[in-house]
Design a binder for these strands. Structure first.
Lengths: 224, 224, 224, 224
DNA sequence: AATGAATGAGATTTCATTCAT
DNA sequence: GATGAATGAAATCTCATTCAT
């Protein structure tokens, strides 16, 4: 609001920082208002540039969304792959770690809102749907399936249908993320959920149900 | 054109059916394309009337959405209340029944898409958010909490935090409904999920984790 | 300017007259300013409707242009075909008649400006280029070629290369039409050409050169 | 990067060539796409410089166009004047020479496209219209009128209205140039015209009609 | 002199809503 | 009641021009 004309030059040239600033602004707004409902100007304004500048960096709103997705989810998935490859302890612990990692690094951050965006708009934007499936969903599913298989192979987990369990495991996590960015953030009160609590409960219950009888469920709770 | 005087004339006959036809058309389109992205003309056209007629019955797109919600979810909740009140068997069975009932009557029908609509647009339509919370979410949560409390009181369920479990229980169900109407229905292939399978797995695991040790997990699977 | 609110209802419903009004407005503006340089609003405004109404009748500016072309040139070509089929006198007279007809009905009317539009924008609008070639240029060329061939066959015209003569015959006519709507109409003075005079001179010279020696050149002048 | 100290350094060497390179790039693009439809960046890019540099040499797109016109047409007109002054043979030969000269040096080169540019955009750019009229059209018309008058004075040409004949003579030439850069160059096939052929035919016919009876038409064909 | 990041007015097209018939 | 023609605000994207470096 208080623009000191001398201190703040009208045309700042910050090519290096721009993409990140635009991506952050876009993520925040896409999550808050939805992709379609967010106007290009809003993204630009929040990033502190003009409409035209936005189009200098991303040729269309759709491409901007793709960049947002890649930037925020692509990396974390690669990282998860590394963890699974290197882990050597019990599978329940690995699984618990992955789920908590996801929640801390994705679900509980703005990036967690990307699922909301996708869920809302996939059917209207087939190209983005495909991009999301190939770049995010597929790799993430594979990662989880690998972990479950490991537990079954080592006799730690009951021999359950992998794909279904995969979905049952992550559904509540994603659901919580969806909630946080929709009902959980809307003006109307009384929709607050203690997401961390729900997730601990879910993980606890899941491992309980997953483990073969001889194993004791590890205590996965961390947020007391 | 050919009005049979004895039978109800076409126009008159349809007049009574109009609201339902409009509601059905609106639900289908809102779920498929989202609330904002659905044009009034489309709703009218799908219902077989003109755009003007739509506004004769519902004064705005928002009011139309409210009517869609009330019509499709209000009733089922009342019905669930009756079941809980009258049920006399083990709580695990009641819980399983409620979950399957929800899936069959809501999740697996067009009405299941309403959650998608809400999740996508609550933050842009505060008035609708409030309506949804008061008319749908609150009653449904209470219903479920009552059932869990019943199980705990009767010593069937472990003494877990009610609200969290409530959410953990329904999150995957709702998540599956969301999926069905977003990724599950979009053009891109390879996103299909066997929702029934996931849900059975989930219920199975949940009851497993919920029950005190002395009880055996009932077999909740129904779709072989 | 003077809108009597009672006499002239704001929303006139004149569905039948609209297309012609829009077409006329579009033709005038496309010719004056060029297709690209004409804004949709201008067309609408000149036709006395709002921007939205224009799009009610023509789904895009390109389709509007196609309609303008078809409406204004398609008919006249068909008519010319009829004349050639039925004519029984000397070929020089037929040729003279066709050229004068074209000038009076096309070149010297707003429709004559369509060539200007096309010449200016074909390379940027390939789809329209194709449309114009198939619907206008080809049929018109065929018509003229047929007339020349008739003159040669009957020994009235020298045996000259048909296609080249065709072009040489009409080039000045079209050129005059182009001029009328570009230099001839622009603010700068001193560019006026007596088009009718040039055309009479051209026709006179052409027939002079075309006829075999035994025939006398008919006097094609009409505008004294 | 590697500046050879002895040879003129790359940057310096090009500096002198810049205006010509920019003019060439502008001409090519203005002819191909039209003046308005050509973006400044395109001109700069084709000339191998940055957008900013273009504005260093020409203060606006309009001034650039003026420079293009002057550079490409101004000279040739002066040259034509010299020829007329010095010629001593028959007027038909002079006329034929002038027409062929124009075609070879203007019509059949990129410069021939300038007429297309002007025809398309005069009405939107009055200042340029005036410039073109004063610097190009007027001098060229005078040149031609002088030649015709010479023929009439010497009893070689029929006593026809000078101005009209002037236009009738050059209209097909200019028309062919227009064609070459519009329909003749557009993607749609089937619009090719043998321009040289048409022009030879035209000149042949014209001289035929122009000459008094005692003179035989000279054979103006050159491309066998 | 040369660059290219930044601007913002302006172009086409869409759509919720109104209202004359 | 029913219609659908009409409206105009708003959204995405473009591009001539400027100016800090």
């Amino acid at each position: 609001m208080s623009k000191t004309p001398l201190a703040a030059p009208l045309r700042q040239r910050r090519k290096e920082a721009r993409p990140q600033e635009l991506l952050d602004a876009a993520l925040a707004l896409f999550v808050e208002k939805g992709f379609s409902a967010t106007r290009s100007d809003e993204v630009a304004e929040r990033a502190g540039v003009s409409k035209g500048t936005l189009y200098l960096y991303y040729p269309s709103k759709e491409e901007l969304l793709k960049a947002v997705i890649q930037q925020n989810l692509g990396q974390i998935i690669a990282q998860g792959g590394g963890i699974v490859d290197e882990f050597e302890g019990p599978s329940a612990e690995l699984l618990s770690m992955l789920m908590h990692l996801w929640w801390d690094r994705v679900g509980d951050t703005p990036a967690g809102g990307i699922h909301k965006i996708m869920m809302s708009e996939v059917r209207n934007f087939p190209e983005i749907a495909q991009f999301y499936r190939d770049e995010i969903i597929k790799p993430a599913s594979d990662l989880l399936a690998r972990t479950l298989q490991r537990g079954i192979d080592r006799g730690e987990f009951r021999d359950l249908p992998i794909v279904e369990v995969t979905h049952a495991l992550f559904a509540p996590l994603i659901f919580m993320a969806l909630h946080k960015h929709s009902f959980g953030a809307c003006a109307a009160e009384g929709m607050e959920i203690d997401c961390g609590g729900v997730i601990n409960t879910h993980i606890d219950l899941m491992l309980h149900g997953l483990l073969t009888k001889q194993d004791a469920a590890p205590k996965g709770k961390r947020n007391p």
